[in-house]
Amino acid sequence: MKLLINGSPHDVPDGMTVAQAVQTLTTATTGVAVAVNDEVVTRGSWETTALRDSDRVEVLTAVQGG
């Protein structure tokens, strides 16, 4: 299936979880938050939340600003 992870298209195996999608970018699990299709997925649900074709996954962290 195809995902958009932080705006980039990715071809990934069916059933990929949010946790696995995050791992394509970082091994960090703190200081990071995830939204799928503009809804927050809490850290405790990353392992059990399966992604679907065409999902938009946003993985955010804090940067300098403001």
């Binding site: 932080n6 970018l25 200081g31 990071v32 938050a33 955010l60 403001g66």
Partner: peptide, 17 residues
């Protein structure tokens, strides 16, 4: 102190946090 939220950049080194 304020910080902004942005897409995680795997190449970024060090963190304001």
């Amino acid at each position: 102190t304020t910080v902004a939220m942005r897409r995680l950049d795997p190449a970024a080194r060090g963190s304001v946090l």
